[in-house]
Computed example of a mutant assay.
Amino acid sequence: MVTMSVQFQVSSSSSSSCLWLPNSPSPPNSPLFLPTRTTRFSSSPLAATPTFSSQSPTIQIIGNHTFDGSNQGGTNLWTDLDTDLYHWTKVLRPVQWFPGHIAKAEKELKEQLKLMDVVIEVRDGRIPMSTSHPQMDLWLGNRKRILVLNREDMISTADRNAWAEYFTRRGIKVVFSNGQLGMGAMKLGRLAKELAADVNVKRRAKGLLPRPVRAGIIGYPNVGKSSLINRLIKRRMCPAAPRPGVTRDLRWVRFGKDLELLDSPGILPMRISDQSAAIKLAICDDIGERSYDVADVAGILVQMLTKFPTVGRDMLCKRYKIDEDSECGKIFIEKLAVHLFNGDVHQAAYRVLSDFRKGRFGWTALERPPR
């Protein structure tokens, strides 16, 4: 029988978000952590005595599948990461956030949709799928639509190209933008006018005077809707801040003589059934902080970043000057807390999340198009 080279470590933390093998004897409140090691496999790995070997190929066991050097950065990385996230989030408290103003805004938005000639849906370029409302297609029907992937400056060229190809293949008009610097704003304005050009053609045919094209800008909280409008009209007409829930009322804003824009509050589903998406919303600050445990979310982020070939555990350890080889993100956060924040886990977790949001680990998306 071939031996399996792996090391087992069990945590006593009941709220840990660490890696857990769903088919192992260990329950979720006692996760089994599997650090990256050189391994060999046996037909009964859990019954075998763990040993280390320097002769076998380097394989990293994560969740219930493996990564090796051949698929780093490829399709398997993203597919397997989705599987990991599903298992990691199963042991966490569900992330849910639906403040009262969203219910009111959703009702009003549905009424305003009747007045719109074209709808501009804004998503976070780092997580385009997770910032897609499950009922959006039902609400919009056949209405003309433009998809904006904002924060293009926060993703890599490879991420951008992958998403551009994905949406183009599906016949979806997509614009990449940076609401803070205004990139893509003018292109978006021109495209909105072009798509709705037939509005005034029909009005003239009926003997009516032309009117401005009405474009509604909708999307999840904190994806950059208000900043995008401010860049379009070149002045601060809509309140904007880098946190969710700033815009609470619908507001029409005139852009020149030909275009009217509707700024709307961020709209979330009443219940987020996909907790992998919810965690990504929390990581990217697209959902209220009171809806999640910062330490849990930061722990998941660490586990995700260690899988990215552009980051990895070595970069994390080097940045924070700590030595940690456990696959458990929660343990990493706890060790960082002791090293830099006098044991304050919340501050350590917030630092890691803030560093990611500011691009300290390099700009990268947390999603790639489904295959």
Rank of each mutant, 00 (worst) to 15 (best):
L109D: 03
R371M: 08
I102Y: 07
A365V: 05
K202C: 04
Y292N: 05
M154T: 09
L208Q: 15
C328E: 09
S13F: 00
E106P: 02
T3F: 10
Q135V: 04
C328W: 06
P309R: 12
R319E: 02
D285N: 15
S291I: 07
V352S: 04
L140T: 14
N161H: 04
I127D: 03
R143P: 04
Q180G: 02
S24K: 08
V246D: 03
K234S: 14
Y166M: 09
M315A: 06
K114T: 10
S26G: 00
M4F: 07
T66I: 13
N23M: 07
F356C: 06
R211S: 12
M270I: 07
Y350H: 07
G189K: 07
L81G: 06
G182K: 01
D198W: 06
G288P: 02
A197H: 11
T36A: 13
P370G: 09
P45N: 00
F98Q: 05
A349E: 04
E260V: 02
A240W: 01
D285Y: 01
M154S: 14
V122A: 04
G245Y: 07
D249R: 14
S156W: 00
R170C: 02
F41Y: 13
R151F: 11
L34E: 05
H65Q: 14
Q72W: 13
L353Q: 08
L85R: 11
V148T: 10
D198P: 00
R357K: 09
Y350Q: 15
G312Y: 07
N161S: 12
R235H: 12
R251W: 04
Y166D: 08
I279S: 08
N222S: 14
I146N: 01
K307N: 11
N200F: 12
L21P: 01
L138F: 07
P265C: 07
V118T: 11
R190V: 06
V118E: 05
P57G: 01
M237A: 15
H65P: 00
K307Y: 01
T310Y: 00
A185K: 00
T247H: 09
P309I: 08
L259T: 06
W163G: 07
D325R: 11
I155R: 04
G219V: 06
C18V: 00
L261E: 02
V223I: 15
Q275F: 10
K307W: 01
E108N: 13
S44M: 04
V352R: 03
K321I: 08
M183E: 14
M136K: 09
D117M: 01
V201H: 12
Q112H: 14
